[in-house]
Design a protein around this nucleic acid. Structure first.
Lengths: 81, 81
DNA sequence: TCTCATTTGTTCGTATGTATC
DNA sequence: AGATACATACGAACAAATGAG
């Protein structure tokens, strides 16, 4: 598991919150902070950290999944591809 | 669960899209294709199949619910009465 | 084997804002 | 003004897979 650090969401931004979360996570992958096989913070952890709703976090994960950057494993977590 | 088959929406029709969806589902119930207790396609499945928005599909389901043709069960699905 | 906590998956409900016709 | 449609966001419940013990 990799710690989450700050996930700062700008509620006033034009960018939807779920895309902000996706952008932050994507940048961590791109930068190498999150490497292949690393587990992302769980949906629950991100809910706590961001104060956003469960469904909103799931939307963010879906974006990265659709981009092929991560894969989800039911009962285990979300992992960098 | 019952498969969805084609759900053809006519964007140019006078009939609102949500009513078109309601009409199609109603006809499947009337014809016996969908029987008492059968589960309708989920909102998500219909969103994918029709290309319409979540809220639009929900409007269609609400029509059938108001007519007493179906009942909704949160976390489970929509079922024929 | 069984139980429990964790985690993702799936489902409907509700509300708000915006755009279009 | 009103109806329709879409996007976003949050709430809630249930299911299924996993792993620890």
């Amino acid at each position: 598991m990799v710690s989450v650090h700050a996930v700062d969401i700008d509620r006033t931004s034009e960018t939807p919150t779920y895309r902000q979360v996706a952008n932050i996570l994507r940048e961590r992958i791109r930068s190498g902070e999150l490497k292949r096989g690393d587990q992302l913070p769980s949906v629950h952890a991100l809910v706590i950290e961001t104060g956003l709703a469960d469904a909103t976090i799931r939307s963010a994960v879906r974006v990265l999944k659709d981009e092929g950057l991560v894969r989800t494993a039911p009962g285990r977590g979300v992992f960098v591809c």
